[in-house]
Design a protein around this nucleic acid. Structure first.
Length: 349
DNA sequence: CGATTTTGACCAGCGC
DNA sequence: GCGCTGGTCAAAATCG
């Protein structure tokens, strides 16, 4: 299996890298999803499966994993399990299996899709950026940035004073791919679209969204893979600092716990809710056609900081088929990194 | 009528 | 320095 580290600030490169790596490894990751009728084949992507479900987030799955060791902050208690609403989930692993995993890099999110037809794997591919995440090691700085950013929002409109001496600091990012017909995945938060740009070498535009909650600077970008239009690459930037929004559509795992406000709080929406929104297919990024793995990759010590709680909290897991035995050990991270040069070459071919 | 989306313009960063 | 590209702004249009 190939863990993919998306180059930090470049989610689009992430997608490209994913594609490139898949290509270079002989089989396209997209082939996996699209081939063989792509899982439920004619599934109505937009009908029911929750976004978080797609991420392999499993409500009642609390097997220990390496992620535990990366979890300083108290995490919100997972919403009540909803077994009936998670048809694609449940491949729980033995805790020992998890702990046997060599590194976070090869620690995989629970792969709900494994439960689907094995011949038609779905998957989601996660990645997190970490350069910027490293900056977050200084919470106060991050907070300052937030305030500054908010302030800028107001001042920009007037004279657009640009920071010249300091590079624009970005929030930690993480990106993942989801097989879906729906561009804008409903993750329970409310987003406002503030821009759209054509993507080079892609017929599909990239959309920019911002969390509508006051003071929350979380952004996300959504674009489709040019290689496989059914693949949506979503990149989150920043972390929500507010409880789950109460939407007209009902409460969704609202985090009412004040203690959670000290840190980023991605609260997992109730599956029931999500199921009403759309049905999406998690897309496993996996360079090995024979495996069915959802991977989450991070790099370095900023691992924790770069991954939103809603991801961390779910104890990402490996699928049975992706046990450590079938995975490269520590070299997984390195060997799977596709040099930019290689990616370019791959694309040119 | 407020919220959201659309869309062209603008700006910063980066590579050449 | 110049051009390209990504990211953002903001006015207008649209939606609910």
């Amino acid at each position: 299996m190939a863990n993919l580290i998306f180059s930090d600030e470049n989610p689009s490169a992430a997608a490209a890298a994913a594609a490139a790596e898949a290509t270079s490894s002989g089989g396209s990751i997209f082939d996996m999803a699209t081939g063989a009728g792509a899982c439920d084949g004619d599934t109505k992507w937009g009908s029911s499966l929750g976004f978080m479900d797609l991420l392999g987030i499993h409500q009642d799955f609390i097997a220990p994993s390496l992620f535990d060791s990366f979890q300083p902050p108290p995490i919100l208690p997972p919403p009540p399990p909803s077994t009936s609403s998670e048809p694609l989930l449940h491949q729980q692993l033995d805790a020992k299996q998890l702990q046997a995993l060599p590194s976070p890099a090869s620690t995989l999110p629970e792969s709900s899709e494994v439960l689907n037809n094995p011949a038609t794997p779905n998957s989601s591919s996660f990645s997190s950026s970490s350069n910027e995440a490293a900056n977050d090691h200084e919470p106060t700085k991050a907070e300052d940035d937030e305030e500054e950013e908010q302030h800028q929002d107001k001042t920009k409109k007037q004279l657009k004073p640009k920071k010249k001496n300091q590079k624009r600091q970005r929030e930690p990012r993480f990106a993942f791919m989801t097989k879906s017909e729906v561009d804008h995945l409903d993750d329970g938060y409310r987003w406002r679209k503030y821009g759209q740009k054509a993507v080079k070498n892609s017929p599909f535009p990239r959309s920019y969204y911002r969390c509508t909650s006051a003071g929350c600077g979380v952004k996300k970008r959504v674009e489709r893979s040019s290689d496989d239009p059914t693949i949506v690459v979503t990149t989150y930037e920043g972390q929500h600092k507010h409880p789950y929004p109460i939407t007209p559509r009902g409460s969704i795992g609202i985090n009412m716990d004040p203690s959670s406000s000290f840190g980023p709080s991605f609260v997992v929406p109730q599956p029931q809710y999500l199921h009403q929104q759309q049905q999406l297919q998690p897309y496993i990024y996996n360079s090995s056609p024979s495996l069915n793995i959802t991977s989450i990759t991070t790099s370095g010590s900023s691992f924790n900081a770069s991954i939103p709680d809603f991801l961390q909290d779910r104890r990402f897991n490996t699928s049975p088929t992706s046990s450590s035995a079938s995975l490269p050990r520590d070299n997984g991270l390195l060997q799977d990194i596709v040099p930019t040069q290689m990616r370019k070459e791959a694309k040119e071919q």
